[in-house]
């Protein structure tokens, strides 16, 4: 099994890695490049922002990213209305020449939880314009179903608030989504450490997306490797099929042949 290919398929495109990583919050571009490289991720998220007109000395993110190797997933972070999110996606497509977008429409600054009404509105417009839409959404199967029905290429429910590192706080909600949704389910947000990523994968998720858990770790490069291994381990563990949980012991060694 471990040697077999087990790609994640999004909108007909195959990806060998089920880990998607962000490019924010790193101490330097060099650290970011190393962390992404060791994570094995093939899809990386980026944000869309104004070019600094007054100071052109700063290096550009894309000077450091091999676009032949990675698929960029521009996000709509910081957008609170469907209108702003759609505008950002159109700009992202023009800048990156790709239809992939991570759609997020936020409802609240403190929690960064999604505004489902605006999210659905934006998703409808963007799918209509030919975008491959991967929406960050609530852990709500009804919202996920609506996003799927609108034509989104995946759903990306949160495991806990963005950047919180609280881990997968909602395994049963994620499980319900997995049982009722046929497009890929990717946990986006909440992961704090490698075991959290493994738990998401053991639930049966198709992938995990994270940024802060790696970039904010004391050693981001080591954490990137830990996340790579955790996602692979979690996926294998899910596919292998765990033993049932039992209340009492069940000896691993035979009773027969015990010394009398």
């Amino acid at each position: 099994m471990s040697m077999q290919r087990d790609p994640m398929v999004i909108a007909g495109r195959e990806f060998n890695s089920r880990l998607m990583v962000g490019t924010g919050k790193y101490a330097s571009f060099q650290q970011m490049v190393q962390a992404i490289e060791i994570s094995g991720a093939e899809i990386i998220t980026v944000a869309v922002r104004r070019v600094n007109i007054s100071d052109r000395s700063k290096e550009s993110l894309l000077d450091h990213i091999d676009l032949k190797k990675y698929t960029l997933l521009p996000n709509t972070a910081g957008c609170y209305t469907a209108e702003d999110a759609v505008r950002t996606c159109r700009l992202a497509r023009e800048a990156g020449m790709s239809d992939f977008v991570k759609l997020e429409v936020l409802g609240d600054e403190k929690t960064l939880f999604p505004d489902n009404e605006e999210l659905l509105k934006a998703a409808k417009i963007l799918v209509g314009e030919g975008f491959t839409v991967l929406p960050y959404c609530s852990d709500d199967v009804t919202v996920c179903r609506k996003l799927q029905d609108l034509g989104c290429a995946a759903v990306m429910p949160l495991g806990a608030p963005i950047g919180s590192g609280l881990g997968i706080r909602n395994p049963y909600n994620i499980k319900i989504i997995l049982e009722n949704i046929s497009v890929p389910v990717i946990v986006d947000a909440g992961v704090g450490c490698a075991s959290d990523a493994a738990i998401a994968m053991e639930l049966g998720c198709d992938g995990v997306l994270m940024n802060t858990a790696i970039a904010g770790a004391q050693d981001p490069i080591a954490m990137a490797e830990a996340m790579k291994l955790a996602v692979i381990a979690g996926r294998l563990s899910f596919k292998a099929g765990r033993i049932p949980r039992k209340l009492y012991a069940n000896a691993s060694s035979p009773i027969e042949g015990l010394l009398g």
Binding site: G22, T23, G24, K25, Y26, M32, T45, V46, A47, V48, R49, R50, V51, I53, S60, L61, L62, L72, P74, N75, A77, R90, L91, A92, E94, A95, G96, I162, G163, L209, M210, N211, T212
Partner: peptide, 28 residues
């Protein structure tokens, strides 16, 4: 309105135009 790259050479700006120039930056 987005100006497609192919039109950069022909799209003439007018007095008072509001221009936005964006790029990709690090994000999650």
């Amino acid at each position: 309105e987005i100006v497609p790259k192919a039109c950069y050479d022909t799209h003439t700006l007018m007095e008072g135009d509001k221009v936005e120039i964006v790029q990709f930056v690090g994000g999650g």
